[in-house]
Design a protein around this nucleic acid. Structure first.
Lengths: 336, 336
DNA sequence: GTCTGGCACTCAGTGTTCCCGAGTGCCAAG
DNA sequence: CTTGGCACTCGGGAACACTGAGTGCCAGAC
């Protein structure tokens, strides 16, 4: 259907449009990319590409602009991910290595990605489900109140205040702490529930109400946070680009749920997901594309991160940046 | 200088301009606000007000628009803070009461404020300096690695990994933990440094290297976080308002340091701070005003929160909302 | 059969002109 | 001091023509 040259023309159209942000005409195209044919020939090819839905004209007598379908073909078959330069990679590495805790890693990552791509970066906090319990701490606050702190192997800390039905003394708390740690240390969060199911029954009678209260809060913590936390940065990069509905995009960015779905789930964790314009699950994001990747330590994916920008973005470069950052974040998290 | 009626005219100009977003002329003004005088008289007054710099015309033969100086006078002398309705207050209360931890309180607050005012809300995390240590926890991670967790009375949790010079056993860690808690429990963060200064010397010789390492990380935590964390929400409310330089405002919002200075420090904690247009410390925010207030439990101010919007905002309503939210957040934090 | 140069056509964007009306400043009378 | 009257200003919209980039199509060349 589309011979080699037509594909070359499509590629040229995408590249030119991305860099100039103006509809590209046959003449300019034939000149800049030495295709070895005349503008007239290019025109014929463009007519075919338009008929097939890969490009379109904003109005008669204007140049052509790629459609979502055109970008899709470009991403899938006509482009190669562009790796970052050695200097950039080194910069990323040192910048991320300076992080002091999980919060800091995430904050740095999202800023880095925004700056690197000059677009809006989105990062999801590492999932709890796949991580494991490193330590559970109980801190008596008052006679009938203790604070529950749970630390995971990804450095995440969850804390909750627990109100107790009865007065307890420090000895009881210490005992419960010991028991909890003994049975949960190293346990995957997803399996905490079954692990502690009959724990109260193994305790002396007087400790059971306390244990039940603590456990119910503990389990609550786990399900609560299944709605993950997501942060973004670089919104300023959107401003000044009139091709996207700024208001709608900002609204979408502030909706955790929408963001969640944008990042999507990977079928293959190591692969990049690219969603172009209308492929998005949210109508306010018609003019934008999302490039996302999973990240994690080792081979289990912890969460996802990505970049959001106008459909007219430089896909090879963006994809390179996202991939690189995802890798480095994974390394950092694994190492800490 | 300005008699009663001129002030009334100024007030009317501000109110009309705020609600219509169009320069207001003498005729419409004389009609809508029954001033009891003719348009011609109003014109004379306006001429005086303009001469004094309170209002200005965008171009000859257009109505008048308040200047920053005009808004300032309006806020200081011509308006009263408008309290929220009972229903709104109840809504705030229940929404904030549902928060599970400090993070949640802050997130909810910022969203609430953004929605309430239909502008950009900014909230600073409660300051560490004035809060006190509730508990310090040491969790052995490996032979030469422990995690330090500090919990404050405001519910904030700080955590760091500490690399130790020597191998230590659990007993040593437990001992240090006990000593730390004994000397720091209830201690103001600002005074932690002096409190632990000669602590290593009071320990048995073999424990000292470990103690020094832990303490250095602990102190680092305190100074590190002195640069507070700030979050914002409601950026979407800015879009569509062409009177502000969207890009510049978004950039400012993503700069922690700038935000910090925007919220400013209160001379009187309970008072509202209003910064109008050019009064701002940052040039990119010429077209915007900030309404901020301190919040805290009891009488010590923990941090600040506020709202950022176009200079042409409804000050009485905005100020009412900021004040109310600040109060409720203070209550919530005090109660948890 | 494919490519190419030529040619007529289309139409967004720009600049020009013109006009309208809201709003002003000033003045003389109440 | 206030008011009605009046001439003046000027931004913004409508009508119009012009320009030029870009197109589609066709007939001839390779």
């Amino acid at each position: 259907m589309l011979d080699e040259r037509k594909l070359a023309v499509l590629r040229a159209v995408v590249e030119d449009y991305v860099s100039t942000n103006e509809p590209v005409g046959s003449k300019a195209l034939a000149e800049r990319h030495n295709l070895g044919v005349s503008p007239a020939t290019v025109r014929n090819d463009m007519a075919v590409l338009e008929e097939q839905g890969y490009i379109t004209q904003p109005h008669t007598s204007a140049g052509r602009v790629p459609t979502d379908k055109g970008y899709r073909l470009f991403v899938d078959r006509l482009s190669q991910i562009k790796p970052l330069s050695a200097a950039e990679r080194r910069a990323i590495e040192t910048f991320l290595a300076g992080a002091v805790d999980l919060d800091d890693v995430v904050t740095r990552t999202v800023r880095l990605l925004a700056q690197l791509t000059r677009q809006v970066a989105v990062v999801q906090y590492p999932s709890l489900v796949r991580s494991t319990v490193r330590h559970v701490e109980l801190v008596p606050l008052a006679e009938r109140r203790i604070m529950l702190v749970m630390i995971t192997n990804t450095g995440r800390v969850e804390q909750r205040v627990v109100d107790l039905p009865d007065v307890v003394d420090d000895g009881q708390v210490a005992h419960l702490r010991a028991v909890l740690n003994a049975s949960l240390d190293g346990c995957r969060l997803g399996r905490v529930a079954e692990q502690v199911a009959e724990l109260p029954e193994r305790l002396p009678e007087p400790d059971r109400p306390m244990a039940t209260a603590v456990l119910s809060v503990l389990l609550e913590t786990l399900v609560d946070r299944h709605e993950e936390k997501i942060v973004f940065a670089g919104a300023a990069n959107l401003a000044g680009d009139f091709s996207v509905g700024l208001r709608e995009v900002l609204e979408a960015l502030e909706e955790q749920v929408v963001l969640m779905r944008l990042l999507g789930e990977a079928n293959d964790p190591s692969a990049l997901t690219v969603r172009i314009g209308s492929e998005n699950p949210y109508s306010g994001l018609r003019g934008t594309s999302i490039v996302a990747a999973g990240y994690g330590s080792g081979d289990n994916e912890l969460a996802r991160l990505g970049v959001l920008g106008p459909t007219r973005m430089d896909y090879p470069v963006t994809m390179g940046a996202v991939r690189a950052v995802a890798r480095y974040v994974g390394q950092i998290l694994a190492g800490s």
